[in-house]
Design a protein around this nucleic acid. Structure first.
Length: 589
RNA sequence: GGUUCGGUAGCUCAGCUGGAUAGAGCGUCAUCCUUCUAAGAUGAGGGCCAUUGGUUCGAAUCCAAUCCGAAUCACCA
């Protein structure tokens, strides 16, 4: 059993037998003891003191003695300072812990396995991926891996927004301005090629509107009357009517985009078990509306449009079917939610979508619950904040975005440059070097985007390149490479039983022991940053350990073997933790 | 205006189910490579935790009000 859980339960049991009070183990607060006090773990006594009407010193002493008796061989001593009960855990406990821990069994299997869908990425086929998509992809992929590490079954999905007026805009612009150019004729990546025409559309549109406005038309009217906009609208209509010429163009241009996306996804390591296309799902939800009307969850207005009244839940009225009988975004999404649940029989469904859609998902979940859809309670919106530039928001139509491909390439180029300057990998083959540059460049980028709380918006300054020192991916990768370098020299065979433990060795053991709890926390909060922070702290601690104590030239063989074991476990924990962030750790760098 | 989310060091961020003297990284300054990889370590400096009031033995953390910022409140997706 986990030591902290053990301490909590033991505290509750001791309080019960000492004072006949019932306290839930969860209510016992166990902290790591602050370095300036003696001990390893601290129990805060104030909570019980009040209830018992005794002084903290008396409760502390009685509880401390009882705990020591209850956990023989684990608690060696205790002290009380101002209402804090500090326990010192025996070295033997930690030595046994280290000796018995297996590098491939760091995370205990959970008992309640669930089937969870994670939907992420959600690209539009009118533009290439940008920095915001990267945050989405890394978050989605990572949370899926964290849940898998815990033992859950995870289905990664992607919904591609491949239809609509915005797609028609780039199609129109291509017809008008491309002269039959293609990605291969211009040597451009397909998604970038198409994205350029989306920008061209907006330029032409703006110019046309400006012309109309200077001719005396109001801005609002000009935006509706611009011929290029009307052409896009007309195209959407043709698309919906199944016009073959339009559909062919649409298929052709989308194919270019997918070719480009594939390259990017492969590079950044995103993968999906199933991809849904909005062109296939946008009509979903029709029967659902009927069902909702029958269940009296929805109601119909005079103009025959269908609505749901959520005012009792503190929200608004929401339309679910237009008067012309077509379904809206919300209805499609409910339909898709139902489809996904049926297809995969999921217990829970996580949507990785930006926080501008918080309201949408709140409503989505509520409607699914009211319709009594299975697993409606298992809908979670992993809401993340925008990535902004120092100048403000990124806008695709204005071309002020940090492009995903460009950024990835730049990170890899920087890692190449730095690696060459340091000159530590002269024995690598060209293939190994390419792989290493990718590993480090992507590691820096992924760590940068995953180390902060997902729900907070973050600012990215393209002028300052992403760091390779300190709280970064490469720092952790470096620590791993360092450990592996030592282990290559010392070997990894451990046979002697250790018998003493220095403070730094103990600190490492304690840090290692908290990994499963960190994974749990990350999974419960859908927050990979918890793992990023933990891994950084572990690496930092190891580096201090490394600077203070020698492994290869330890004081004795027993010490050497103990430290080899600590090295093995630290490397394994770093590797595992980084792997769920999507970051590989090199053997040498 | 309603709802939701933010405001912590010069910058980027932890800490938020209340607990001991508020922590990292970057940047600045100073030390440490003839001993396991210096993408490292050690130290210094840097704070009215937005403001005010409340609850409490104890508040960055909880409550209320105020100020500042963002998102949303589409028959767009």
């Amino acid at each position: 059993m986990n030591l902290i859980t053990n301490l909590k339960e033991s505290t509750a049991a001791s309080l019960q037998s000492l004072y006949q009070v019932t306290i839930q183990p969860d209510q016992v607060l166990v902290n790591a003891t602050k370095p300036e006090f003696e001990g390893d773990y601290t129990i805060v006594l104030f909570a019980f003191v009040k209830q018992l009407g005794k002084s903290p010193d008396i409760v502390g002493n009685e509880l401390g003695a009882a705990m020591q008796k209850a956990l023989p061989g684990i608690i060696t001593k205790y002290n009380i300072v101002k209402g804090f009960l500090n326990f010192t855990i025996s070295n033997d406990y930690w030595l046994a812990y280290i000796t018995n821990l297996k590098p491939n069994e760091l995370i205990p299997a959970i008992t309640k396995k669930r089937k969870i869908m994670v939907e992420y990425s959600s690209p539009n086929t009118n533009k290439p991926l940008h920095l915001g998509h990267l945050r989405n992809n890394f978050l989605g992929w990572s949370i899926a891996e964290i849940l898998k590490l815990q033992g859950h079954e995870v289905v990664k999905t992607c919904i591609v927004n491949d239809r609509g007026i915005h797609i028609c805009k780039s199609m129109i612009a291509w017809q008008l301005f491309a002269n039959g150019a293609t990605p291969s004729s211009t040597h451009k990546k397909g998604d970038h090629f198409v994205g350029d025409y989306y920008v061209k559309y907006n330029d032409a549109f703006k110019a046309e509107v400006a012309g109309l406005v200077s001719g005396g038309m109001s801005q609002e009217l000009a935006e509706k009357e611009a011929s290029i906009f009307k052409a896009a609208q007309e195209m959407l209509l043709k698309w919906e009517q199944g016009d073959t010429v339009t559909l062919d163009l649409w298929k052709k241009m989308n194919a270019w985009v997918y070719e480009g996306f594939d390259v990017t996804y492969k590079k950044i390591g995103s993968d999906f078990f199933k991809t849904y296309y909005e062109s296939n799902t946008y009509l979903l939800g029709k029967e659902l509306v009927e069902e909702g009307l029958a269940k009296k969850v929805f109601y119909q207005k005079e103009d025959s449009s269908v609505w749901i009244d959520l005012t009792a839940d503190g929200l608004d009225e929401k339309i679910v079917r237009r008067k012309d009988g077509t379904s809206v975004y919300m209805t499609q999404d409910i339909g898709l939610a139902q489809l996904k649940q049926k297809e995969f029989n999921t217990d829970a469904s996580i949507y990785v979508v930006g926080d501008e859609q918080n309201y949408h998902f709140k409503v989505l979940k509520l409607i699914c619950q009211k319709l009594q859809q299975p697993a409606a309670d298992g809908i979670y919106h992993l809401s993340y904040g925008m990535v902004e530039l120092p100048t403000g928001k990124m806008k695709s139509r204005e071309g002020t975005v940090v492009d995903a491909d460009d950024l990835v390439d730049e990170m890899i180029a920087i890692s190449k440059e730095k690696t060459e300057t340091l000159g530590k990998v002269d024995d690598f083959t060209p293939t190994q070097l390419t792989e290493l540059y990718n590993t480090i460049g992507l590691g820096a980028l992924k760590f940068f985007l995953l180390r902060v709380d997902p729900k907070k918006k973050m600012i990215f300054n393209p002028e300052e390149s992403i760091d390779f020192h300190g709280f970064t991916g490469p720092f952790i990768q470096y620590t791993h490479a360092r450990i592996k370098s030592i282990l290559r020299k010392t070997g990894t065979t451990v046979s002697l039983t250790p018998n003493e433990l220095l403070p730094l060795e103990k600190q490492l053991a304690i840090e290692l022991s908290s990994f499963p709890a960190v994974v749990n926390e990350a999974a419960e909060n859908l927050d990979p940053s918890k793992i990023a922070i933990y891994t950084f702290n572990l690496a930092k601690l190891f580096n201090t350990f490394y600077a203070e104590l020698s492994i290869a030239n330890a004081e004795s063989d027993v010490k050497k073997q103990l430290r080899i074991q600590l090295g093995i476990l630290t490397a394994a924990t770093i590797q595992k933790a980084m792997s769920v962030l999507g970051i590989a750790v090199p053997e040498q760098m």
